[in-house]
């Protein structure tokens, strides 16, 4: 009886929480800036394209060399800066991923037929991705930085973007469809660049 009583109370609490959460305005993701260089360049460039610079900045050999030549305080400062850069980079890659995910949702909502399996799989993958990114972020913050793995992650996103654009271009051979798709996406505020 007690269990049942609390189950229903909890169910209502969860429902009210979810109702409030689903009704609030979507939060604007605030991405830590990678600096003026990133913002002033071609907006079409993905974060993944900055990978060589990021890898260079995060290279352990570079850090060891610096640590052997300078004071511990400075080395610590540099380590902190590098972590900040890695976090900003991770946020950027996440932003790219979200943009592509949004594209997928818009295509789903504007389609006369959607596959339940495809939609569930995408939802599941999106949740997995978000959880894993949180884990990586936590590791970075704790100083257990998995820096080399970021490269694989960003390559995957950029590859995905290229394939998406190719797929749409292929469809673009049927000019009418391409125009329709482009205008639909534009109306929904999806930027394919």
């Amino acid at each position: 009886m007690n269990f049942l009583f609390y189950t229903f109370i909890l169910a209502v609490a969860v429902l009210l929480f979810l109702l409030a959460w689903s009704l609030r305005a979507p939060r604007k993701r605030r991405t830590p800036s990678l600096g003026p260089l990133a913002s002033e360049q071609d907006p079409g460039r993905r974060h993944a394209t900055y990978l060589p610079q990021i890898q260079r900045a995060l290279a352990p050999a570079d850090f060891e060399f610096l640590a052997s030549r300078t004071s511990r305080r400075l080395a610590r400062q540099v380590g902190k800066e590098r972590r900040r850069i890695a976090l900003a980079y991770l946020s950027g890659v996440q932003e790219d991923f979200q943009r592509l995910l949004k594209l997928a949702r818009v295509i789903a909502i504007l389609s006369p037929e959607v596959g339940a399996a495809q939609e569930f799989e995408r939802l599941q993958l999106g949740v997995q991705f978000a959880l894993r990114c949180h884990m990586i972020r936590a590791e970075l913050l704790l100083g257990l930085a998995p820096l080399p793995q970021l490269s694989g992650l960003s390559q995957m996103v950029s590859g995905f973007a290229v394939r998406m654009e190719t797929a749409i271009t292929e469809l673009g051979e049927r000019a009418a469809l391409a125009t329709e798709l482009a205008s639909s996406l534009e109306r929904r505020g999806v930027d394919l660049r």
């Binding site: 295509i107 959607v114 495809q118 799989e121 993958l125 997995q128 995957m156 469809l171």
Partner: peptide, 23 residues
């Protein structure tokens, strides 16, 4: 204005494949 059904069939599996690999 809905898109022709072919677009979803062409792109959705591609998106999911990429996401799966990514994960």
């Amino acid at each position: 204005i809905l898109l022709p059904s072919g677009i979803y069939q062409a792109i959705a599996p591609e998106i999911n494949l990429r996401l799966r690999l990514f994960n």
